[in-house]
């Protein structure tokens, strides 16, 4: 895994200038996401009208991979239906954990810049955290942690010295 593949221009740009940064005043859905081990901590809020995500925002404190993933996520989710958003969550998780069926069509588009994390098991949860949090917000779960059952990676990087 060459870090140049992961830290591409588009990722660095979204890290530096995150899109849809902040929180919505009175969102219909909101959730908090936390990676206890590395300290990635984000909030995702969204407005859903009918079946459509009309607005979405995020904020928090995280590494570049997590922040860029969240920024690009908000950009690609805004205006989509909830069903489409959930499908994208599934596709992104599968890509990050190396389970994406390459022969089947997907909707990831530019999000494939994160495909390199599948070779960096300790960084998978950084990329996936925003998507977990979005999923939690849509399904009205207040907080989500990638250390929990939803952890896409087998095993855990617990509290080691």
């Amino acid at each position: 895994m060459d870090s140049k593949l992961l830290y591409q221009e588009v990722v660095l740009d979204h890290n530096k200038k995150p899109r849809n940064w902040g929180s919505l005043p009175q969102p219909t859905h909101r959730a908090e996401g936390l990676n206890p081990l590395c300290g990635d901590h984000i909030w995702v809020s969204l407005n859903v009208a009918g079946d459509k995500v009309t607005d979405i925002a995020f904020e928090g404190d995280s590494c570049a991979i997590c922040k860029a993933s969240a920024s690009m996520m908000t950009a690609s989710i805004k205006g989509r239906s909830v069903g489409e958003a959930e499908e994208l969550v599934r596709e992104f998780r599968d890509m990050a954990t190396g389970r994406l069926d390459a022969s089947a069509p997907n909707h990831l588009g530019r999000l494939t810049v994160f495909s390199g994390v599948k070779d960096l098991p300790s960084r998978v949860k950084c990329a996936v955290l925003p998507w977990h949090t979005l999923h939690a917000a849509i399904n009205a779960e207040a907080t989500v942690s990638t250390e929990g059952e939803a952890d896409p990676v087998p095993g855990s990087w617990g509290d080691t010295p």
Binding site: D2, S3, L6, Y7, S62, C63, A64, R123
Partner: peptide
């Protein structure tokens, strides 16, 4: 720069 990004690039 977040320490985890530093660690990944140093590993490289």
């Amino acid at each position: 720069v977040h320490p985890h990004d530093v660690g990944t690039i140093l590993n490289e």
